[in-house]
Design a binder for these strands. Sequence first.
DNA 1: CGGTGCGTTGATGTTGCTCAAAGGATGTGG
DNA 2: CCACATCCTTTGAGCAACATCAACGCACCG
Lengths: 235, 235
Amino acid sequence: MSSSKKMCVSLVPIFNHLEEEEMKKIVELSNSKKYKKGEIIFRSGESENHLYIVHKGKVKIFRLTESGKEQFIRTMESGDFLGELSLFTKNKHNSFAEAMTDVEICVIERNDFQKLLYQFPAISLKVLEELSSRLESAEKLVSQLSSQDAEIRVASYLMELVDIHGKTEIMLPMSKKDLASYLGTTQETLSRKLSGFQQKGYIKQSGQRKIHIIDMAAIRQIIGSRDLRCKNSSR
Amino acid sequence: MSSSKKMCVSLVPIFNHLEEEEMKKIVELSNSKKYKKGEIIFRSGESENHLYIVHKGKVKIFRLTESGKEQFIRTMESGDFLGELSLFTKNKHNSFAEAMTDVEICVIERNDFQKLLYQFPAISLKVLEELSSRLESAEKLVSQLSSQDAEIRVASYLMELVDIHGKTEIMLPMSKKDLASYLGTTQETLSRKLSGFQQKGYIKQSGQRKIHIIDMAAIRQIIGSRDLRCKNSSR
DNA sequence: CGGTGCGTTGATGTTGCTCAAAGGATGTGG
DNA sequence: CCACATCCTTTGAGCAACATCAACGCACCG
């Protein structure tokens, strides 16, 4: 119990650089909770009073679109923290968190966390870093979504995965259904696009989530081809 | 000169709560710069070594879409700061900043700013707050963009402005061109949608950017009408 | 004034959403 | 261990929304 609490604290990048003693203090403030796959951890509209730290498992964060569709925002894995937004602004949650697998989470009270920030400025810096990078990826996502072309979005995403994995064998980190939502399209369209790529020999799908990239150049072409469609004459 | 520096520091929410003396220190670290309307303040890809604080005027932040289109991210006005991302992660800029009007900006060196954060934990908290709320609006934007329907996006945006202004007379904070980009659509579509609303008597446009909301209820209808379109039979 | 960029409107084509139906994959309980 | 339920995935067909192209009116600026 206490050990799993300790695990949490020592896991998270925002804490794990602290001295033994300081960590101990934090451990005392934290609580451990478990959720089964599919359980909702919090709902949009609920008021936020905690910092959640994912200790074990995977959590999916999503919103509901104005028009009622589920919009996948991101996944959180071991070491990630969430609930950060309302920690400072006293707002309500504006998104949902659902356990994608069985999950263990450590929880710290809002007020306690704020005190920690005052006590240990270094923590603030870590949190800042994390928020910055999260903001960055959110803005990147925005930029991708407004690329009208679903094909380009899919292609970009594949390239992104290649970069992350560092090889041409990639695994989708979520179901195609969720991925479609993340990319701002539908399951059907995503499925068609991938099948299309496969037919043209750009990729090879195996199993549910494994994709082998065969012709990177061709895929890059797609991304950079905003006016190929104009007419083949002009360029 | 020095007075305009001081203005900057006392303007920004992240600093203006500090003691006179502390501010003085900060003033010493800052520099003032001016840009003419249309000038680029920084470009995507340039490395980031400064915190910019907008003192006077308006700045537009945008990215270039994978497909080469301009994607409007946000505007920054007096008191807002930017350049925050790379301040912590040592990255390159991933967006462009362009002066929408003549602009005065205060600049602080990256390293100096980091020192400030260590010295005054309260600053970190302010920055955290700001980043949080920025992240929130980015995620909201994501959620809106993936609402396939441009009409809904336009309607939502109008309602948002009404909330902000607190009245039914609203001013667009940017050109329709930029707004279209922000909403992930084109000038033409935006123009048509607005004309459409006007024809149905929901709104009244006057001048370039002034809009009077007449029938809020109708507009709210649009937003919540994900399956009205099924068949006209239902209404 | 001519020039440049923004805003509007019209016509046309295409992407990708919707609905529908059926084939895997996975899991649950008998 | 099998039968059944559920969820994810794939494929098909039709249609509406929206991007694109094009042309013109309008404002702002030198």
